[in-house]
């Protein structure tokens, strides 16, 4: 297998961007949980955790 050239700087930038987006999603999700009845968010959480 011939490996492609890898631009590590580009990869690092992409990793940082991805992490920033994840943190933004966490803010979005936390705000959604705050506005949502316990019954609704905990049911969705149960689906993921009990999988």
């Amino acid at each position: 297998m011939k490996l492609p050239d890898i631009d590590l700087e580009e990869l690092k930038k992409s990793k940082e961007k991805n992490f920033k987006e994840r943190l933004e999603f966490i803010d979005f999700y936390a705000n959604w949980v705050k506005k949502t009845p316990n019954k609704v968010w905990s049911k969705q959480q149960k689906t993921i955790i009990d999988k």
């Binding site: 949980v33 705050k34 506005k35 949502t36 009845p37 316990n38 019954k39 968010w41 905990s42 049911k43 959480q45 149960k46 955790i49 009990d50």
Partner: peptide
């Protein structure tokens, strides 16, 4: 999210998952 907050206690109800 319905949480009942006091200085020393947080109480709430949720649908329990296996970890809970």
């Amino acid at each position: 999210m319905e949480l009942n907050f006091t200085k020393d206690c947080i109480s709430f109800e949720k649908e329990l998952n296996q970890l809970d």
